[in-house]
Design a binder for these strands. Structure first.
Length: 570
DNA sequence: GCCGTTTTCGGCCCGACTGTTTTCAGTCG
């Protein structure tokens, strides 16, 4: 996709300009444009063809011309010229924590270091010490940083992040000096994956909290330890940042520490236009009087806008919507009446239908789809005709006993290499709900995969398409599909697309899910539970749905059983 | 390089921590 190419080049230009020491605002313009284009659901191609590139935020005359040049030639002059001046390896050094553009340039200019490997050799041989501003400590940090970057500190799934954050909060919340403590950052925003854990605490005695934090049993290394802010690396190489502020500033600090960065910048710019200043301590006027600080709601109100839920804080139109009082009424966990994707021990799940039912009742559900795998997925003990009969009888019997919860006889059926279902029509029609999924042929072309899924949508017996892009964290990336085609087919055939809330999947992602809604497609959250405890992953599915601006009416999960059974018939 | 309910020029978010300094630049989020 051309967007990725454009974004990569703009990001590279930003890095190269940083090292050269260009105008920081110009550098940021490239960086912002890169982020903006990477996050777009639509292709920039048509915008260029219609001369509408400058309508995009952050794209002016100059960048529009560069985008056109990249579309036409695959690259742009400016980028090619910069690459000749600064070797690739110098840019790679920026990935080392602690090394920024100035330091990378220093090493390159003074010692002609052109790669991370060369940097390590130079550090070990003692060639770095003695450079301006470099002494022993800096050399040590460079070596530690390289070690870290080579271990590949990658993003973690949201469940892992929640557990790590929970462990830290659990240890610190019992301290007398901690008045309040809450995870912030991308975890609070419900992002699909998380890089660092950010935690915010309110206390009158920040030093005590800092001491307790860096002394936690699972801390391997302390990378920063100040009066109100510390960073540590856990034994699993996960970075955790803790910031401590006075309770009176908790709202302002939570807002700041939750981000996103782009959201914060936009808010602060807005404040400047109102002759105000925002920082983590509050909203201040020109005379340094604090106008709001205790709660996030108070701060948004002071800026003349509605409260923005954390999941929306990505600078994707939420600030404008909040000012016009047009934010969506986001779906909540309480609105959810059932789960569309759960496995039992009939196929590859760990628990019996009874155990799954008990867990679903605990969550207060009206219904639960037991979507065991279909016949052709042998590795997952997919069900043949005989075992389907047994399962059907089993579920009917259970439903006779259960009060308040209905187990739906369902399947996660295979979409074959040509887009057909692996069960024949007479079997498909026996299910209450048919969830169709691609589990094979990931390497087919984008066009072929799109055709398969479109064909599944058009199948009158298919109700939901599971995990539409097939990604699995961390090993398997999404396969490429033409979302426009799939959304068109899904909307036209009343087929729902799944938001798979399993932390290893989180698929559809927030951006395509929002685009699906805008294309008139209904969505259905499924947890893909293979264990009764996994039904709790609904929280992640709902978080994702909220990030996609979804309201109650956009999801099948919010329908009563009666309505659901009516709506789902095609 | 972008952008305008003060502006087509002159701004551009804001502060903590580190390591090296002795008042601050660089990095990070």
């Amino acid at each position: 996709m051309i967007n990725a190419r454009v974004a990569d080049i703009f990001r590279a230009i930003a890095e190269l300009l940083e090292i050269r020491g260009g105008n920081p605002f110009r550098i940021r313009a490239y960086g912002r444009a890169a982020d903006r284009i990477a996050a777009m659901q639509e292709d920039v191609g048509p915008y260029a063809a219609q001369g509408r590139l400058e309508e995009l935020e952050g794209i002016g005359k100059d960048l529009a011309a560069k985008i056109e040049e990249i579309i036409a030639t695959g690259s742009c002059r400016h980028y090619e010229d910069l690459k000749k001046i600064i070797p690739r390896g110098v840019v790679d050094m920026l990935a080392v924590p602690g090394i920024g553009p100035k330091t990378a340039k220093l090493f390159y200019d003074e010692l002609d270091i052109r790669s991370v490997a060369a940097l390590r050799r130079a550090a070990r041989r003692g060639r770095l010490a003695g450079l301006p501003g470099v002494r022993q400590k800096t050399v040590e940090n460079v070596l530690k940083g390289i070690e870290l970057v080579e271990k590949g500190r990658q993003r973690m799934d949201i469940e892992t992040a929640r557990q790590v954050a929970g462990a830290v909060v659990g240890e610190l919340k019992n301290l007398k000096s901690v008045k309040d403590i809450e995870p912030a950052g991308s975890l609070r925003r419900g992002r699909e994956t998380v890089r660092d854990i950010d935690i915010l605490a309110a206390s009158f005695k920040p030093a005590q909290v800092m001491e307790a934090f860096v002394a936690l049993p699972f801390v391997k290394r302390v990378s920063a330890h100040g009066a109100t802010k510390s960073s540590v690396l856990t034994k699993d190489d996960i970075q955790v940042d803790l910031r401590v502020l006075a309770p009176s500033a908790f709202g302002a600090a939570l807002l700041y520490f939750t981000g996103s960065k782009d959201h914060n910048i936009k808010l602060r710019q807005l404040a400047i236009r109102k002759k105000l200043r925002i920082n983590e301590y509050g909203v201040f006027d020109k005379k340094e009087r604090c106008l709001a600080s205790r709660s996030e709601a108070e701060i948004y109100a002071r800026l003349g806008m509605d409260f923005i839920p954390p999941e929306l804080r990505e600078d994707k139109g939420e600030i404008e919507a909040a000012r016009r009082h047009r934010l969506p009424r986001l779906v909540t966990l309480k609105d959810i009446r059932g789960d569309f994707h759960a496995h039992t021990n009939y196929s590859d799940g760990r628990n019996t239908p009874e155990e799954m039912a008990t867990a679903a009742r605990r969550l207060g559900y009206d219904y639960l789809c037991l979507t065991d795998h279909s016949v052709s997925l042998r590795v997952a003990r997919g069900l043949d005709k005989e075992r389907l009969k047994k399962k059907r009888a089993h579920i009917d019997k259970l439903n006779g006993r259960l009060k308040g919860l209905r187990l739906l006889f369902a399947t996660e059926a295979e979409i074959d290499a040509d887009g057909r279902m692996d069960y024949p029509v007479d079997i498909l029609r026996t299910f209450d709900v048919v969830v169709a999924a691609v589990h094979s042929g990931f390497k087919q072309s984008r066009a072929h995969l799109t055709r398969r899924i479109v064909r599944a949508c058009r199948n009158p017996d298919v109700h939901i398409i599971a995990h539409p892009t097939g990604r699995q964290w961390p090993a398997r990336p999404s396969y490429e599909v033409d979302f426009d085609e799939i959304f068109k087919a899904a909307a036209a055939t009343n087929t729902a697309l799944e938001i798979n809330g399993h932390p290893m999947r989180m698929d559809l992602g927030d951006i395509p899910a929002r685009a699906a809604k805008e294309a008139g497609v209904r969505l259905a959250i499924g947890t893909d539970a293979h264990d009764a405890a996994h039904l709790d992953y609904m929280r992640f599915g709902v978080g994702l749905a909220r990030r996609a601006w979804l309201e109650k009416k956009d999801l099948l999960n919010t329908l009563s059983l009666e309505k659901l059974l009516k709506v789902i018939k095609k």
